[in-house]
Design a protein around this nucleic acid. Sequence first.
DNA 1: ATGACCACCTGCGAGC
DNA 2: TGCTCGCAGGTGGTCA
Length: 348
Amino acid sequence: MPELPEVEVVRRGLERWVSGRIVADVEVLHPRAVRRHIAGGEDFGARLKGHRIGLAQRRGKYLWLPLSDLGEVGPVPEPPGPVPRRVVAAPEYAQYEGDAPPGDAPQGLGHKPLPRGARERTPLPPGRSADSPSAVLAHLGMSGQLLVQPQDAPDEKHLRIRVRFADDLNTELRFVDQRTFGGLSLHDTSPEGLPDVIAHIARDPLDALFDDDAFHEALRRRRTTVKRALLDQSLISGVGNIYADEALWRARLHYERPTTGFTRPRTAELLGHVRDVMNEALAVGGTSFDSLYVNVNGESGYFDRSLDAYGREGEPCRRCGTLMRRRPWMNRSSYFCPRCQRPPRIKP
DNA sequence: ATGACCACCTGCGAGC
DNA sequence: TGCTCGCAGGTGGTCA
C-alpha cells in the first residue's frame, strides 16, 4: 500500500478500529516482517503485550501507533465498534492537520537524527511503566496491508503478524504482506512523538507544518531533476511513483526538468498540484489497481479511474490528445505526455 | 552530494 | 501446459 493517500486511508481505519485497545497477544509468523525490530519477533511481541494503543499517526508513507501504559490513555476520538461511516470532506487541504503535534514543533524539513540512546531496553514487567515513550512503526512497502479482521476469519496466504486484543470485540489486527518489503517494529519516540528511526523523513505536503519556502530553497540547492526530488523522502515525503507522475502531468513538467532554475511560483504551482491530486485520491479512498491496495476493511479506492498519466501509455493525453508515453526510469517507469511535458533541452 | 545500480521478495500476465 | 521475461505502488545500501 504505497503512497500517502493510501497510507492515510489505513491510518484512519486504525484510528477508528484499533486506537484505544489493549494488546493481549502478538504472533509473528514471518521474521522478515519484523526485521527492523533488531531484537527480533519474540521481543517485539513481549513489548507490545499489555499496552494500550494510542492515536494512529502518519508521516509520509510511515504509520505508527504510540503505546501508552494502562491508565494513561490519550484521547480516543471514537470508541471502537460499529459507527456510521464518516463522509470524507471534499478536497480541502487547508483543513487537513496531518500528524502535526498540537503545540509548535521544529519547522522545515526532516528532523535531525536523535543520538541513539538506550535502544535495547530490557523487557518491561507487565503493567509497569515505560522509561521512554515508544511506538509501533509500520511501513507497508510495496504490498503490505493492515487489516482489521474477525478473529474467526481464515488466515490470509501472506499473513505475517497477528495482534490480538484484550476486549470482546472479536476482531484482530493483521499485517499481511506478499513481498515482505514492509514491516512492523518498535521504537522510542522523540518529544514530538516521532519514532527515532524516521527522523530523516521530511514532513509531507498535507502536513500543516510543511514549510513551502524551505522546500523551495532545498529544491533549488539540489542539483537534481524534479521527479527525483519529489521521490526524495528527506525533501518531501509521501510522494511515490504514481502521484509524482500525476502532479508532473498537471504541472506540465517533464520528469527530467532540473530543479535548479525553479522559480518560487513554479514550486508553488507544483506543490499545489501534489496536494490537489493527493486530496482528490484521499477523498475516494486512494488508488487501487487490484486487491493489494485496500483499507483496513479490505475495500479498494477508486482513484485509478481518475489517473491522467500513470499507466496510460499509448492512450490519448486528456489535455491535448497526444499519445502518452512510458519511459524506463530508475528501474521503474515514468508516464508523460510528450507534447504537454517537453523534455529539457540539455539533459542534465 | 549525487545518482546509477542493485538487493530485498512474490506473483502476474504476455509471449513463445 | 509450462517456461522465461518483464513488470509492480518502496526503501536503503554500495560505489564511483
